[in-house]
């Protein structure tokens, strides 16, 4: 699997490109997840978001997630692209595409991917609200990661 299946990019993401990477004559099912910048979170209005990544490691971690999925759901193909930089409301931050011969694994593997992204991929989001800005991090007070990998995370944009 070419490594451009797992990319951090600065330009807008075209969902179709990511879907094409996983198309397969023996896939009966393709699921995609498109994470977009949401305007309202409760009463709070987001003006824009800024994403930063530790790019080479982030791409490695995305690739690792793809490998974990192939191991758990044989026959799947996975492609993930995450955008960084300044994103406006409704812009696409991440696209995850999973193809599989059968639909159940395509859903499960896709959801697994977004959960793992929020755990282990070194990407950070700064929210710009009307009245301030903040880097968003773990809201669950994980003081340490004894397994060497963060296990959980929360408070993110599509939670």
């Amino acid at each position: 699997m070419p490594s451009n299946y797992f990319e951090i990019v600065e330009d807008p993401i075209d969902t179709k490109d990511i879907i094409q990477k996983v198309e397969d004559r023996n896939a009966g099912a393709i699921t995609t997840f498109i994470g977009t910048v949401r305007e309202m979170t409760g009463e709070k209005r987001t003006i824009y978001l800024e994403y930063q990544a530790y790019k080479p490691m982030a791409e490695k971690m995305l690739e690792q997630i793809g490998q974990e999925i192939n191991d758990r759901w044989p026959g799947t193909h996975v492609a993930i692209t995450h955008r960084i930089g300044s994103l406006a409301i409704a812009d696409i931050a991440v696209v995850i595409a999973v193809s599989s011969p059968n639909r159940k694994p395509a859903y499960e593997a896709n959801e697994y991917a977004i959960e793992r992204i929020k755990q282990i991929v070194p990407i950070w989001k700064k929210e710009q609200w009307e009245d301030g800005a903040a880097w968003i991090g773990d809201q669950l007070e994980n003081v340490s990661y004894p397994t060497g990998k963060p296990e959980t995370n929360g408070g993110d944009h599509n939670d």
């Binding site: 994403y51 530790y54 490691m57 929020k118 773990d138 060497g148 963060p150 993110d156």
Partner: peptide
């Protein structure tokens, strides 16, 4: 991990809680 060894020449990254996705 906390007990892993860092040597001269290494690149270390400090990774605060991530918030991608």
């Amino acid at each position: 991990l906390e007990h892993d060894v860092v040597k001269s020449g290494d690149t270390v990254a400090v990774i605060p809680p991530v918030s991608g996705g």
